[in-house]
Design a binder for these strands. Sequence first.
DNA 1: TTAAATAGCGGGAACGTTATCGGGAAAGCT
DNA 2: AGCTTTCCCGATAACGTTCCCGCTATTTAA
Lengths: 347, 347
Amino acid sequence: MHNHCITIKDIARELNLSVSTVSRAFRDAYDVSQETKEKVLTMAVQLNYKPNFNAIGLVKNQTNNIAVMLPSITNYYFSTVITGIQEVGYSKGYNIIFYVTNDSPDRELSIIKNLSLTSIDGLLVCTTLTSDHSDHFKKIIENGTPVVFFDRVATDIKTSKVVQDDYNGAFEAVTHLVSSGYEKIAHISGRKSLAITQKRTRGYVDALKKFKLPVREEWITQSGFSQEDGEKDVYELLKCKEIPDAIFAVNDRKAIGAMLSLKKLNIKIGEEMGVIGFTNDPVSSIISPGLTTIAVPALEVGSKSCELLLKHISKKHFEPEELILPGRLIVRESTLKTPHPISMLAS
Amino acid sequence: MHNHCITIKDIARELNLSVSTVSRAFRDAYDVSQETKEKVLTMAVQLNYKPNFNAIGLVKNQTNNIAVMLPSITNYYFSTVITGIQEVGYSKGYNIIFYVTNDSPDRELSIIKNLSLTSIDGLLVCTTLTSDHSDHFKKIIENGTPVVFFDRVATDIKTSKVVQDDYNGAFEAVTHLVSSGYEKIAHISGRKSLAITQKRTRGYVDALKKFKLPVREEWITQSGFSQEDGEKDVYELLKCKEIPDAIFAVNDRKAIGAMLSLKKLNIKIGEEMGVIGFTNDPVSSIISPGLTTIAVPALEVGSKSCELLLKHISKKHFEPEELILPGRLIVRESTLKTPHPISMLAS
DNA sequence: TTAAATAGCGGGAACGTTATCGGGAAAGCT
DNA sequence: AGCTTTCCCGATAACGTTCCCGCTATTTAA
């Protein structure tokens, strides 16, 4: 029923030009005079012309949309990354389509399979927790679809990747704990198989070694990434022969879970047990005591990933780049060994 | 450089059929024998055929993607709504493209203007705070693009809308406060111009009237929706001649802001001042005391909106529907007048 | 038995755009 | 003056698919 969408032909007829000329007027500077170009452009706005992307895509074999596949969007980190992606994508005229895997490898696989090669120009992906088989990614890369990984990356695939500086962030976190007076520092970690957890654990271990502090196996727990996992891990740590006096959590959600358990057990956070997280989720400034954490450049992770992908799309043989974006320490009350000066100020 | 994508023609050549027959075999049951249909289908998987959506869209004048425009995606409510949208969209073969307005009417306007009529099949929108001019929406609806509003809806436009039950939710919130023993109930509200705040305020007022409790103008503050707004509003309320003993916040973010201010002022939450929110943001169960709230069916708002939009897309003259989805009360500690039994249990 | 209906398939135009080629006019060079 | 180059533009074929029309062979109705 659509009232006849106006096309390039209408402009051509109106101006007594050929469609080729009008088409050129829209994009090329050469092979068309300045005068006619202006005439075309003004006529375009006058008629309210909108290009038909299907037609353009058909002849150019492109779609102007890029897909982003990730575990979830209902948490601070991922939704912020998406916002970053969306900002640069939108400014360059690309549509962002996203697929939520819910951390299910099956869903990841089926999405990739259904992903028609002709329906997207490129793919941004954060893998699921169990990245056992990355063959499906290799396939679509071989087929010519540009792929960029972010956050959780597949280590055995040669393509562009964007991550935060997990190693140095962890190192800085532990350094902060040490300089705050903690000496028995535990680490509640994530899924062992992921590069992200390995790097953070390496940073933790190396920092301990640097300060000549003990590295104890029993002080490193490995489970999931959820708040509940954090709650449980604390109970594990309290079973240790030597009970730690500080916890470095692999992310804020686990740190918050840990804090909830500590509160339940009436262990004073900061004073008796220091806690530091990783992410800077907004919640960490809302809960009390405030959670000290390593802020992650989520927005930049998104925007840089998207920029890289667009480079891959424009030049077909673009050398893969790996970006490592630095985080920054944000000190709040959860790593304060002395009783809160805040509560005194408040009155 | 793409290795020649295989098309319908390749299948036709391979089976000695015409393209028309192959095309029909993929969708129509009539005008093609069962036998050839099966041959086509098996050959399709054998050759790994993927349909070219640009070509299909070009002839059918459709795009298979729907746009969702909303203020932000970095909070619980919106990201959950999007997840709901994405789930039904994905299952029906639609791509979800989204545009973030950051609550800027200018951005909203420019997005709508740039939105090529041929690049989307439909639009889901949650308006910005200042919905003064809804003419741009009317225009694209007149042009034939199906539009469904959710959450923040434009009241003067006749099209499908999906909202949570703001009125009854507010009514229930106040009812809960009253039955918990509070009598001087204030309301920190949102932007006056939005239907969502008007409905919640009406529910608040009507509930007070039902219980024959005073409705005082000074007990109703109107500002933004952010946590900071909540923090400020509390200070306003404390300036009142008669200081209230409970607060019904228009959403959880403001409720949390209010709680932060109360904590700073050493006013005991629950005991001295009850607080109830609206949304059931995950944070409300993390902070202490836990925030009592009206849980909003965010996922359903998303999925139902998308279903409605798809109905509009399939049948061009679909009568607009307005869906009102019920919320549910979740009681936590912020509306507990007696000292927390929780902390006793914990030891 | 004959006319009409039907089932199954092919041919070709169309969708809106870009890209390749070619051609004519104007301008520059020797 | 004659040649080459440059500038501007038009015609036409693609891109992959659907849809309308028409054809043939078979089945059904009278």
